[in-house]
Design a protein around this nucleic acid. Sequence first.
DNA 1: GCCAACGTTGGC
DNA 2: GCCAACGTTGGC
Length: 140
Amino acid sequence: MAYWLFKSEPSTWSWDQQVAKGDAGEEWDGVRNYQARNFMRQMKLGDRGFFYHSQKDKAIVGIVEVCAEAHPDSTTVDDRWDCVDIKAVRPFVKPVTLDQIKADPRLADMVLVKNSRLSVQPVSDAEWAVICELGQAQTD
DNA sequence: GCCAACGTTGGC
DNA sequence: GCCAACGTTGGC
């Protein structure tokens, strides 16, 4: 299984809104960046991802699961843009902040640190384990 | 609220 | 195909 990170401004789309969608999930639409789109096209059903709040929180707040593989983004007629659907799996007991991530040498190579503007990014197995530990999230 | 970094657009 | 201009993102 591959791991990913989805970034969102809470004022636009927050973890609480994601949770409210339940197991039905929701399109991760509105992405207009080729790199981010390409990562979504690589995603498989059941892949897991972190849900990151940018701007005010700057923290990973929960875990999501891919519940539909890449399909056309319903918010545009432009056929260049695809997106996946994701559903909330569980929140972190303790959100993992950007400060924590930057302070941990094991996470120094994270895309979040190196290319903070990319809204959908891959996470390595090792990074996934470290962050789940920091956030006290179950990893079943 | 500012501004640096980055990606995209469009004129040539 | 290059590159300047522009818009957007997101940390500070």
